[in-house]
């Protein structure tokens, strides 16, 4: 079932560059140049792109803050920017760089305030609060003013805040930015769990590891256009980046044999370290190389490195 449906989405706006006090330059920005995608219910979608690619614009339109210049957006039965007030009851949003908490007040006060704003019934609120306190380990920080929280604590509190009204879909804009490894791990584990319970999650991030762990689908945007959509697995196969085979040899091999192998596969040999590095084009070739090496040499250490997701993304960006 399609939950988020985006068709032909375009957004243009003009900004003014100040030249002097009275004169200014008009610059037209095409933030989105017609993008299409769908998200199914219960999906965990990762949305990535370099700075200024149109990520924030997309998320602003999807959350109803901004109206598009052209195109259609449906989320569930709503058109976000047309029925904003009714629509936002169903979504939870975290902007990693802005807080929606009351800065000077304890966390619990913000939660109570949000309970009032979203008209959550007391019983539901109590149940949800207990759940969030347990899963996000909020017990110690609930009574602390937000301004005293560390970044990791604040982000957990922030996630709690966007879930008080138990929305069906979450939009998370860089929720792990600036977090240390432990805090990040907690956030990720929590997101995995609520996704399993059926929440649809739309995540933008710069951290590709997050996406690799969390998302089943991903979208890559660059210069206002979608340049990849599909599974994270498939992404690895679409580029021609080589698989790297590294072998640490036990003894110095014969020069003739090495030259023969280097002639057959692209690669390099470091005699002083007895290390051989070969590039393989695909999985079949990789196993072929492995067989050849194990048959001919004593191997001390053997490693296969698939291209990292960073490298793949870098390549996709540079292509357009």
């Amino acid at each position: 079932m399609e939950y988020i449906n985006v068709r032909g989405l375009k957004k243009e706006y003009t900004i003014y560059q100040k030249k002097s006090l009275w004169r200014r330059n008009k610059i037209k920005i095409k933030a989105l140049q017609g993008i299409d995608f769908t998200v199914k219910q219960g999906e965990f979608l990762g949305y990535i792109g370099p700075n200024g690619a149109g990520k924030s614009t997309t998320i602003k339109i999807l959350t109803g803050i901004m109206t598009p210049s052209e195109g259609m957006v449906n989320v569930g039965k709503y058109i976000p920017y047309q029925e904003r007030k009714r629509y936002v009851q169903n979504i939870g949003v975290v902007f990693g760089q802005k807080t929606q908490m009351w800065w000077d007040l304890p966390v619990i006060d913000t939660y109570q305030l949000l309970r009032g704003i979203y008209r959550v019934a007391p019983i539901d609120y109590q149940r949800q609060l207990e759940y969030l306190v347990e899963k996000l380990s909020l017990a110690d920080i609930l009574k602390q003013p937000v301004r005293q929280l560390s970044l990791g604590q604040r982000m957990r509190a922030e996630l709690g805040a966007c879930l008080i009204h138990n929305p069906a879909i979450l939009f998370l804009d860089e929720p792990t930015i600036g977090l240390d490894l432990i805090s990040k791990h907690r956030v990720i584990a929590f997101l995995q769990e609520i996704n399993k319970q059926g929440k649809t999650i739309f995540l933008t991030t710069h951290d590709l590891k997050d996406i690799e762990i969390l998302c089943n689908q991903m979208l890559v945007i660059n210069h206002g256009k979608i340049v990849y959509k599909g599974t994270v697995e498939k992404l690895k196969t679409i580029t021609a980046l080589p698989i790297r085979v590294l072998a640490q040899l036990a003894h110095q091999p014969g020069v003739h044999l090495i030259n023969q192998i280097l002639a057959q596969y692209a690669g390099i040999y470091y005699p002083e370290k007895k290390r051989l590095i070969l590039d393989s084009k695909n999985k079949k070739e990789t196993s072929e190389i492995a067989k050849t090496l194990f048959n001919n040499f004593g191997i001390e250490d053997f490693k296969i490195e698939e291209p990292s997701i960073e490298e793949i993304i870098k390549m996709i960006y540079s292509k357009n």
């Binding site: 904003r84 007030k85 802005k98 979203y118």
Partner: peptide, 14 residues
């Protein structure tokens, strides 16, 4: 200027 106005738009209250 702080962008906090965005978060107000995300709530179902005028």
């Amino acid at each position: 200027l702080s962008g906090k106005f965005d978060t107000l738009l995300l709530r179902p209250v005028p």
